[in-house]
Design a protein around this nucleic acid. Structure first.
Lengths: 351, 351
DNA sequence: CGGACAATTGTTAGCGCTAACATGTGCCTC
DNA sequence: GAGGCACATGTTAGCGCTAACAATTGTCCG
């Protein structure tokens, strides 16, 4: 099993012998307990350093019941947002002395979520964080009983669970208002998967803003977050742009629920010979690093994913201390680039 | 600490009492040992199900010295390739009964790598997998002594370490050959970070292919993997395209070391009024989901990241069994789309 | 100057599990 | 029918650590 001549991990007893104290004193030094004489502490620390001793996590976990590990349940970690949040989460967890164990759901089902949480519980993780999961998995989260704190990150706001989230509604409102202020009569919308709370939040924000401005609320197109679905929505929309020109019901602005779909949409519009923002203005959501280099550069809503991860860990720590940490949503920010422009003065001039 | 009336995790003793056997028999059933009477096994299994018993991982780890956990050390997990590979790794690990614990390096330094591996060792992980790390961190990997198998995924081929990788050279050769076959005199190259083994592999494949074809090997531009660096390279290249037209030394084809930089480059060329593939053909690397929707759709080299993850776990398992698993590289595939076209017949006709 | 009390260190037990060994039972063989 | 042997189960020890308690020392105060 160990091809190299592994030097057999040493324990506290070895350190204790080397420093001439009891193993308990070593334990006290390792755990930073107060009542240890400075000289003794010094001696123990030196012994630890000399021997290269590292405490055995499993033994400690067995007796304390805590592994200093956070279990992360997620799906769609291959998407920019969740991946970026993972980065923030891991860094913050590590800074707080916690490790991160990940489980990726094969499907967004209740069973998968239940099983993942179960596995984490039997691994004695100190808390479970659910990141960017959808539909049934999210609902399961609400029902799940767990002996450890179970918190949600970026699954929209859920009053039933301690949650950390970016205010999707505000972001969507920002995007919509920007387009209305440019003189567009109304704003169309391509949303994400129906079972995604983020998608729902964005749709809600968009609808509220339109309603508040007294604008007509057009029918939405449904997408999957992926570029291909944005492309499909783009073709459909292009047809409506043309039809709209004749009927006077112009499509001049779209708010797309994420940048990747916006890219697909941009591509479809381009193929159809429509110019952006000349014929139609487009706003995305996320501000992926690529967005600034789309053709044209995409106006979008930036989410601070790293901050989200940090707050997720803060929330976990607060729960572990038994505090009722009330998390404020993280505020998104509108980034204006070249894909949005003023509505054309007359709705019926053709290219 | 536990606001809910947590039912206090029960142990083997409880199950044993409930089933009327000894705790050892329960242990045997749980671990699938052979010599248990079918009736007894049945009874124990029922007791387990009825009580909802889950074995305590920490206790097991303490006595066996194995946590059935794989430690994953990575950086750049926010990039498409590594994230996708993570997906494959986790799934394969879970299927084999292993959990995945992740550490993300703050910087690609030897110290960071050493510390991460150290933490994993003291956590008694069964193996450590290094995924897509660069420079000094990779070199540290080669030097690191560890009591557990330490394997590398996607850091280029490293003869000093058990490694699983996509053959970058073949991929680069595929891209380069494709362009040469379209009639381009030579192919320019935008590479990735200098300390990335992948970037080096791609550059090597490109250079070899050019040399084999007797083509001139132009100077490379250095990028960072991010779109912004591709954009910078694009502006520079555009200037050379113009200069080349006058001097006769035309720049008509570029192989960019990843898709994100290719996007930036495409954007820069577009801004400069150059058409793709009319004025210049572009090939990327990775085949991110967005690549098909760039303007124009990007010809690129697809890597099978999920397969890479799967093989990574296979390699880990083989090592744990003490076998000398010899991994073959995963072969990349050229995906031809609209960003490449034939070289123009005469090198000096202007737009 | 004796007793109380704090500071420091040591001793003991046990977390929940697996491995090694011990025991008990039935069956086959010679 | 005694010995042996495979199977089924139970008993015991201990993995490396922390928590609770015990012991020892020194210090301060009345």
């Amino acid at each position: 099993m160990l091809p190299e001549g592994a030097p057999r991990a040493l324990g506290m007893a070895d350190v204790a012998a080397h420093a001439g104290v009891s193993h308990q004193t070593v334990s006290r030094v390792v755990n930073g307990h107060p009542n240890v004489a400075p000289a003794t502490r010094e001696r123990v620390l030196r012994a630890i350093a000399e021997l290269g001793y590292r405490p055995n996590t499993a033994a400690r976990a067995l007796v304390t019941g805590s592994t200093r590990t956070i279990g992360l349940v997620t799906s769609h970690i291959n998407q920019y947002g969740p991946a970026q949040t993972l980065l923030g989460l891991e860094k913050a967890a590590r800074a707080a002395g916690y490790s991160l164990s990940v489980a990726i759901l094969d499907e967004d089902s209740e069973g998968a979520m239940r099983e993942a949480v179960d596995r984490f519980v039997s691994q004695s993780v100190d808390a479970v964080v659910a990141l960017s999961t959808y539909g049934q998995a999210v609902e399961a989260l609400g029902r799940l009983q767990s002996p450890v704190p179970l918190i949600a990150v970026q699954v929209g706001y859920d009053p039933a669970r301690p949650t950390v989230w970016v205010d999707q509604e505000v972001g969507a409102a920002l995007a919509t208002r920007h387009l209305l202020q440019l003189g567009h009569r109304t704003v169309h919308h391509v949303t994400g998967p129906q079972d995604s709370l983020e998608a729902r939040g964005r749709m809600l924000g968009w609808r509220k803003e339109l309603t508040a401005a007294g604008a007509r609320v057009p029918e939405v197109s449904y997408g999957s977050w992926w570029p291909s679905s944005g492309y499909a929505a783009g073709r459909e929309l292009a047809a409506r742009v043309r039809a709209g020109r004749r009927s006077g019901e112009a499509v001049t602005a779209v708010f797309v629920a994420n940048d990747q779909m916006a890219l697909g949409l941009l591509n479809a519009l381009h193929e159809e010979g429509l110019t952006v923002p000349g014929d139609i203005s487009v706003v995305g959501f996320d501000d992926v690093p690529e967005a600034a280099y789309y053709t044209p550069p995409l106006t979008t809503v930036r989410q601070d994913f790293a901050e989200l991860g940090r707050r997720g860990v803060q929330l976990v720590l607060a729960r572990l201390r038994g505090e009722g940490f009330h998390a404020e949503p993280v505020m998104p920010q509108l980034i204006v680039r070249g894909s949005t422009g003023p509505a054309r003065p007359a709705p019926d001039q053709s290219a």
